[in-house]
Design a protein around this nucleic acid. Structure first.
Lengths: 187, 187
DNA sequence: CAAGGGCTATCTATCGATAGATAGGCGGAG
DNA sequence: CTCCGCCTATCTATCGATAGATAGCCCTTG
C-alpha cells in the first residue's frame, strides 16, 4: 500500500518541469505538492541535478518502450507516425505542458552536465526510432537522406509543440502537424 | 559619443536572455556585464517584467523591418525564404543562442503578462510575414491553407533551432532546413 | 550673468523572499 | 538494536526590489 514516495516525487517533479522548466522546479514547491518536506526530497535525490537526470532518464526509457510498441502494433508507417505525433500532442492536452526534454533543451546552457546528457539521449532515442520507421520497406534507401528527414521530423514536432504552447492553443499543434503531412514531411 | 546606457542594457540583456532565458536573466549579472549597479537597471526598467517586455517589443519591431526589407529586395519567394531561415541561423552561430521569443515561449507559464503579450506579437509578426510571402503570385490561393502552412513553417524553423541548440551543432539546423525544403514544406 | 531649483543618472546599503543544501534527531519496522 | 525514511532547524547564496544620498546638468528667475 506504500505509495512509494520516490515515485510520487518523480511523477510530480516531471509534471512540474513539463510546465515550468528545470529552472522553475523548486524543492520546496515540489515537496509541498508531494506532501513531504524538502529535506526528504534531498534524501532521495541528493542534488537537483540528480533529480533532473533521473527524470530525463526515465522519460527517455519510457519513450523507447512506448514508441517500440507502436512499431510492433502496426505495420503501417502513417499509422505509427500518427501515434507518434499524438504522444507529443498529449503533453499539450495535459494542461498545456511540453515535452520534458523539449523544454529542457531550451535551458541547455544552465543544465547540469548529467541532466544534459540524458536530454541528449532522448533526442537520440527519437531520431533512431524515426529512422527505423522511415526505413520500413525502403530497404535500399539512402541512409543519409532518411537520417536527415528523421531529424527534421523530430525538430518540426518539437517546434509545433513549442509554438502551440506559446499560443496556449492545441489547435495550433494540430494545424502544424496537418501542414507537415500535406507538405509531405510526414509520411 | 554617449553610449546610451539604456541601449547598452537592452543589448546586453537581449544576449543574455537568448543564451539563458528570461528566468536566467539576473539584474546583478546584467549590471556587472554592463558595468553599472543593479539599482541603475531598475532606474531604467522599474521591474523585470518591464525590461523583458521592452526586449521582446524591440525584437518584434526589428523583425518587421528586417523581414519586410527581404520582400522589397527580392521578388523571388525562395530567396526570401532563405534569408528568413538565415536570420534564425544567425542566432545559433552567435554562441549557440536562440530566438528571443522562442526561448521565452518555453518559459510561457512563468512570464509576466506584459512580456507574454510581446512574445505573442513576435509570433504574429512572423506568421503574417510568411503569409504575405506565400501569397505572392497565388492571387487566388486558399487563404486558410496558406495560413496553415505559414504557421507550420514558423513552428518548424523554431523547432530546428531548438533541437540544434540542444545538440550544440549548427549543422543540425542546416540539415533540418534542407530537409524541409526537400520535403516541400519550404518554397 | 549668476544663483538656485529641480531633474537625471547613478551610487551604497539593505530588505524580505526564496533557492539548494546540510546536520542531526526521532520513530517505527525488521 | 539497528537502520530507513522522514522530520526540524538552519545555512549560505542569490533573487528582485527599494530607500536615500549624491554629483552633474539644464532651466528658470531675479
Amino acid at each position: 500500500m506504500t505509495a512509494d514516495t520516490k515515485q510520487v516525487i518523480m511523477d510530480t517533479a516531471r509534471a512540474m518541469v513539463q510546465a515550468r522548466g528545470y529552472s522553475g522546479l523548486s524543492f520546496r514547491e515540489l515537496a509541498k505538492e508531494v506532501g513531504v518536506k524538502s529535506a526528504s526530497i534531498h534524501y532521495h535525490f541528493p542534488t537537483k541535478g540528480d533529480l533532473g537526470a533521473a527524470l530525463a532518464r526515465r522519460y527517455a526509457d519510457e519513450a523507447i518502450e512506448i514508441f517500440d510498441a507502436f512499431l510492433e502494433a502496426s505495420p503501417d508507417i502513417g499509422a505509427c507516425m500518427r501515434k507518434y505525433t499524438d504522444v507529443f500532442r498529449s503533453a499539450l492536452s495535459n494542461n498545456n505542458r511540453m515535452c520534458l526534454c523539449g523544454i529542457m533543451a531550451a535551458e541547455h546552457d544552465d543544465l547540469p552536465a548529467e541532466v544534459r546528457a540524458e536530454v541528449d539521449r532522448f533526442t537520440d532515442v527519437n531520431i533512431r526510432w524515426l529512422i527505423k520507421l522511415l526505413s520500413r520497406g525502403k530497404s535500399k534507401a539512402a541512409a543519409g537522406a532518411i537520417a536527415q528527414r528523421a531529424l527534421a521530423i523530430f525538430a518540426a514536432v518539437e517546434g509545433a509543440q513549442l509554438v502551440a504552447r506559446g499560443r496556449g492553443d492545441i489547435a495550433v499543434y494540430d494545424q502544424a502537424i496537418e501542414a507537415y503531412r500535406t507538405a509531405g514531411l510526414l509520411p
